[in-house]
Design a binder for these strands. Sequence first.
RNA 1: GGGCGGUUAGCUCAGCGGUUAGAGCGUCCCGCUUACACCGGGAAGGUCCGCGGUUCAAAUCCGUGACCGCCCACCA
Length: 736
Amino acid sequence: MPQEIPKAYEPQEIEEHWAKAWYEENLFRAENSGNPKLAGDAQPRFSIALPPPNVTGSIHIGHMLEHTQIDMLVRWHRMRGERTLWLPGMDHAGIATQFVVERMLAAEGVRRQDLGREEFERRVWRWKAESGGVIKQQMIRLGASCDWTREKFTLDPALYRSVLEAFLRLHREGLIYRGRYMVNWCPRCQTAISDLEVVHNERAGNLWHIRYPVADSKEFLVVATTRPETMLGDTAVAVHPEDERYAHLVGKKVMLPLMNREIPVIADSYVDREFGTGVVKITPAHDPNDFEVGKRHNLPEIDVMTDDAHLNADAGKYAGLERFVARGRVIADLEALGLMEKITEHTHNVGTCDRCKAIVEPRLSTQWFMKMKPLADEAKKAVTGEFGPAAEIEVVPDNQRTILLQWFENIRDWCISRQLWWGHRIPIWHCAGCKEMIPATSSDVEIVDGHARAAGIPAKCPKCGSEKLAQDKDVLDTWFSSALWPFSTLGWPDDSEDLRTFYPTSLLISGYDILFFWDARMIMVGLHLAPGASEKDRIPFRRLYLHSLVRTAEGAKMSKTKGTGVDPLQLTQQYGTDALRYMLASMAAPGTDIALTEDRILGARAFANKIWNAARFLFMNLEKAEASSGITLEELAAPEIRSAAPYAVKGEGELVHRWIFSRLAATSAEVSKALDEFRFHEACQTIYHFFWGDFCDWYIEWVKPQLSSTDRDVAVPAWRNIFAVLDTALRVLHPV
RNA sequence: GGGCGGUUAGCUCAGCGGUUAGAGCGUCCCGCUUACACCGGGAAGGUCCGCGGUUCAAAUCCGUGACCGCCCACCA
């Protein structure tokens, strides 16, 4: 202890000092935890994987909430003598990172296409180094007690190997397939995106009622549409099979206006007689429903758009126009021809790209998909406990379980290929001759230019013998590698020591916003691919806790790419990490989101200060007591002396000592229980009350005279007691 | 169209079957008592959204209505 203890807690220097020391000494290596006397299965274990932050910038306060909660549990388990691993790492975040880098390039007036794939990748790697470094420093500074010796990145060679192994296995099993289907196409990012990456917003729009002249007749069929420009790709018009109004026209042809193409009138029960006119134009290449209808009726599929959402040559005279320009032109032309029956107002859902907000175009495209049904069925059983209690994944809070199960119930296949340059390249080669698709011969990787590439390059086409093979240009959805995270980071597919020791992980803590993106897919993929004879060995985690989200005082969600994130380091400078962590933890009630307000941080800072001062008081008075009654720190701090507390104190006040110890025991028990049930806020509140109310306000005040007594029979036991209490209280507090 | 939350003190929120409903911040009085004014002592302040029900007992459980918010969904 320094001579002069500052009056107020000055967190900056102290916290930074310890954070650095912890990191440099690798204090939190898994090897440093646990009870050395216990070997093998007798040693209790606790393992948890960090949800890898995206390397799209730096972490914000929301990450810090997550990390604080994880850290509390990790420290708590470590203190209880368990072999504890918190494995950190980061995610390459394919589309998100590529978007960020593209945006930076745009500021220089450069497009990624100008640079070419290789150069662009180099730029992203450079950005990754920068961003990843920042994130790591932030986490260290914020005191996250993870094992940095095991840090991973989703594009590490070892993890690419896991990805290859997973892909090849699933492909071999027929769970990964390639095909031409309707996908969500983002014209800005110029890639397909999964259903989950589409955000639907209600927007005011119109319903355009267009007359399609019936061939060889004076009649019209009036169709209603929200996207008139897609009519250029119509290949049929549909009515309900039992709709008497139109029964006589089924099987006839109508003339598609503007394109002057004859298309059939078909009957399909998909049509809702009540909506609009009861007649639907069918555009199989640009609408998911129409695509299904088209398949049922063997309709041609005419894609009228280009990758960047301009109309293509199949759109006749509209070719080259941007889609919304074309819409205007189509409407004007229809009106000029007198074929626009009417225009009504209509609000409808518009899908936008989660990343760049561009309006998504449903579009026919050849992509890689993952068959989800069989995987989801198994995952469901793990969540409902059908595999037995040992293989049950407990979901907290409980209502999220329902949500998860519903999602498994209604699962659809997952489009896993992305037309991006940043990510895991698909290990399939296409034969130039016979179009055969040849998978990599192994999941081995080689290092080229410092980064991993698939090494199992097939030499020639097994079907036609051609040697003109080219690797698929697409990369995998970033969540594909994320789905493997709990075991890929531990060495899978190798049978590694870490994998045997720490898999399945004990727990996953993630935000509920990525429940489907990540958590659900980990369960499905882990259950299918992870090693182990039974389900209980393959589930990726035994418990799943979905934490709430930190919002701004106005309730907006935080996001780095949107620039609404709050930098935790800045707040740390102002209030101290401990205060921030405490504040976050104390607000982390399951199920409700957190609005960030300064008040709460101030309260937390006051608490940190209180603790500091309580300790300061004791140390300052100890010096005096040394003089008056000859007490030494050694007499108090030795573990065997502490553990023998409480000591009987001569004279009055015996009860007070007994009281504080009973309160301490109760507090400690309550905190443990709260932590075990993820009630972080209650744990905080309990300690707060004990420390401030019981310990400071009552106990210290009461014991003050005893501490300064010259009678050693009074002073020594009193001191011993108060030190034991302080020590234990700080230990209870340590997780926070 | 389905599902999930929320509505409690001036503000932000906890509590979710059992004595006078809590916390932080704010407000009002009183205190520089040898750790702390980022403090201590005290006080004011609440038909726990409305209505109906279950119960010896309800902010807490059930039903219903209202108003907010979120998620999922292929009605053109």
